[in-house]
Design a protein around this nucleic acid. Structure first.
Lengths: 216, 216
DNA sequence: TAGATTGTTAATCGATTAACAATC
DNA sequence: TAGATTGTTAATCGATTAACAATC
């Protein structure tokens, strides 16, 4: 498997391809050319072929790409077949929403358990996932291979929780706390969902769209 | 106000600057140079000066940038002073989480109301925001200036709801449904929060990090 | 076979970085 | 004033697009 210096732009397009391929499969399509895929996704055929060629040769001249094959390749590149184990910390509304609606298993992940400090939550379960006492978290992390932690704790607990879990060897954090985590271990991966960055960006474009026409 | 062809890369860094400036303000700092800001954010001083210079001259030679001034400029560029009105549609766990925890007003937005189809929810309120019957949505949109709709409905309702609201003149959608909305009006702005894209990206890097060292 | 479409190399375009005169 | 740091122009780097020989 060739894996070398692939740009983050390419990587972030892979899940989009995957989503599109699922949609095409659902619609009953079984093959597609780079030009048709580009048309549907708003990308150039060149870019699509370049993107795929970072990882191998998945197409066939004169035919295009077989959707099932391509989907399998991309899901493998993304590691969806690795059965990564996940733990969620902080079962507020957002944590709750992710447990019940995100569909971890549908993406190839195992959501092993959730943790919270709130006594009323401890021992209950949502969608088959038990909520455990935060106090038992280090023990849990030490006795289970946990690949990814979903961090949905309140902002004030973000950095201390991050420190706790990275000390226990967790190497990847899916961060919903809307702060930039300060982690001194350079091997820990952090993927942020910054709600506010997203909404403010939308606010910019809205302001921009209103600007040139009339300066009200 | 100069507004011309500013790249999306620049725009998406603006909220990050804002977050950093808020943090610096909280820490009691009142000025900063592009090199120190770059050091703290992992950007080059050149890039920071280039970014800001897209919008004006906010610094001072030999001094740097006044944090309060810079913050005000950026928040204006993002349109945070425009008092945009927002409506949220779909009060499941996620919608609920956003209403209670996102802090729309803290970002300069007015969350006017929420809508859902579930009878048990209609007429109740969370954090002072009333949940109204979806059936009353068109009336509401026609009699109120609603700038942005937060779309937190189930996936199956995504496109029909998007069609409904764009027909009522809504020009911006903050989309949490994890599908690519099909909207035929090119003037409607859509900003997606694709949870799965984010997690899959993290999965890629995790897989990648495990790859070169040992192929286990 | 002829037509279609890939994978890849070369060309272009845009974004980031470096350099430096201007100036607080 | 001297030192620091900006805003901006030029240089570099990287990503996207175009072109085309290979081939299914």
């Amino acid at each position: 498997m060739k894996r070398a210096k692939i740009s983050s732009n390419v990587i972030r397009r892979l899940p989009r391809y995957l989503r599109k391929l699922d949609e095409l499969t659902y619609d009953g399509t079984d093959r597609i050319s780079s030009s048709e895929l580009g048309r549907q996704m708003g990308l150039t055929p060149s870019q699509i072929r370049q993107d795929f060629s970072c990882f191998g040769e998945f197409g066939q001249q004169g035919y295009g790409y077989n959707i099932e094959t391509l989907r399998k390749e991309i899901s493998q590149i993304l590691g969806m077949d690795r059965g990564y184990n996940i733990v969620l910390i902080g079962v507020g509304n957002l944590g709750h929403a992710l447990i019940e609606n995100f569909g971890f298993s549908g993406h190839g992940y195992n959501l092993l358990a959730a943790f919270d400090v709130k006594p009323a939550l401890i021992g209950t379960q949502f969608a088959g996932v038990y909520i455990n006492d935060m106090a038992t978290l280090p023990d849990f992390l030490n006795s289970n291979k946990v690949d990814i932690v979903v961090l949905t704790v309140p902002r004030r607990a973000a950095n201390s929780t991050a420190a706790l879990i990275t000390d226990c060897g967790v190497k990847a954090i899916w961060n919903f706390t809307n702060i930039e985590l300060s982690i001194n271990n350079p091997n820990v991966l952090v993927e942020d969902i910054h709600f506010s960055d997203s909404l403010l960006t939308l606010g910019y474009y809205l302001t921009d769209a209103a600007s040139p026409g009339s300066d009200d």
